[in-house]
Amino acid sequence: MTVATKSEILQGTLDLMVLKTLDAMGPLHGYGIALRIEQLSDEVLQVNQGTVYASLVRLVQKRWIRAEWGTSENNRSAKYYDITSRGRKQLAAEAKDWARIAGVIGKLLQLESR
């Protein structure tokens, strides 16, 4: 049960996190994205770094991000991902949704218990 729930939550939220990371950091390779998300989540999100690649495929398919082979800072070839304008629009919409739902749940949880 925990596994299913976890992956369900992950698929949506991980896509959103990847999108936001690219929005904030500019072009990044898969490793960079995974690292950044790990750092930001303060180790709360313990997943294999490989899972970001599933997220990246989904986002590329929807053309919210694009991929291109490039050269890393220490001269190694790596595939770089960058957010597109469609991706930015989507991000804005999803961020708004997220905030609204978070607000609702926050309020609910503040209800006094009997």
Partner: peptide, 17 residues
């Protein structure tokens, strides 16, 4: 092939780090 290369580059970058 492309994805294999991408994973190899991931491991390479992580190893360097």
């Amino acid at each position: 092939d492309d994805f294999t290369r991408e994973l190899a580059s991931h491991v390479e970058l992580a190893t360097q780090e």
